[in-house]
Amino acid sequence: MDKQQAQRKNSKMVVKLMAIVLGMFGFGFALVPLYDVLCDALGINGKTSEVAAVYESVEVDTSRLITVDFITRINTGMPWEFKAKTRQVKVHPGEMSQVNFYVRNPTKSLIVGQAVPSVSPGPAALYMNKTECFCFEQQTLQAGEEVLMPMKFYVDPQLPKNITYFTVQYTLYNVTASAEVVAMN
């Protein structure tokens, strides 16, 4: 085999290997949506759906009573006060109910907040259907402003029989900086 032939063979192989490299670089980023899809499908990280559920022809299962706890947490760097007005509700699966959360911006400047829900135990997250939630969008509070934020939900009657009690936690993040970036763009 002469030199040119050998070089052609080598370059062909380099092209193929570079394709693997680029493919794997893409795969690294593909892991991001893949991770979300897997977590949604298996309900394994306690994330609830980010879109509002529709309450339509849901049968109420009066044979069971589910206890739902609501707790709140403020992330580091977030100066707001954040409380669950209703700490606990007992609901039948399929029954609509509403709970309220209180927030106040005690600072002297405008702050944008984002609440992120998390359900424990994780598998219950798949059955926590929210028709209305402050966590679907960012909250902007002027200096000193206080608001009562509603959240409407029902527990899917398909909820596995072994789950009788679950906790919904909202963590409030200060997203003022990134909201500004988005606004600028």
């Binding site: 680029l22 794997m24 690294g28 980023f29 892991l31 992330n75 990134s178």
Partner: peptide, 27 residues
Amino acid sequence: MPVLAGAVTMVLTDKFFGTSFFDAAGG
């Protein structure tokens, strides 16, 4: 190694360009 390159790139954009790959507040 390309996956590592992806991971550090995500850290870079999260830190300096406002993305939220690893920031719960941004999803």
